[in-house]
């Protein structure tokens, strides 16, 4: 079965990013497909490559990036939500005349249409949030 996953909350602040990760991992282990993971609202903060969580804590950006690499996951960060929250890749940095970017290469920035498209393409949309 084909799943789409939407994450509405920021990492560490809320369990949503963790729950979505555990769900995705379990789904992939069972041989299901994840069509897309869409990060929305504060969920976009998961994509920062600058986070340095304490050594004894999980690193959610890294966990997602590793899972994405193993399973070739499409991880999309909503551009509108990202702009509001100061999340930018290199293109966005240049486009908005900013002096830095912070998106981990495992993630890509794109529009909300990607969420709707995922809802259309997937058999189930799973929403994790607050």
């Amino acid at each position: 079965m084909k799943f789409a996953i939407q994450i509405n909350e920021g990492p560490y602040q809320h369990q949503a990013v963790d729950s979505a990760y555990q769900f995705a991992k379990a789904a992939l282990d069972k041989g299901h497909e994840i069509f897309r993971v869409f990060f929305y609202h504060d969920g976009v903060n998961t994509a920062t490559r600058l986070a340095v969580p304490p050594q004894d804590d999980r690193n959610l950006t890294k966990l997602w990036a590793e899972l994405a690499e193993q399973h070739n996951l499409d991880m999309v960060v909503c551009v509108a939500a990202a702009q509001r929250r100061g999340m930018a890749d290199e293109d966005e940095m240049k486009r908005n005349g900013k002096d830095a970017n912070n998106i981990h290469p495992a993630f890509r920035i794109s529009g909300l249409g990607q969420l709707i498209e995922a809802g259309i393409a997937a058999d189930r949309l799973m929403v994790f949030g607050d």
């Binding site: 609202h41 509108a80 939500a81 709707i116 259309i120």
Partner: peptide, 19 residues
Amino acid sequence: TVYALESLEVVLIGAAFDQ
């Protein structure tokens, strides 16, 4: 909280998909 606003933004974008 921001949910109402950002949900409305999805609705507007989603309208273009003819669902």
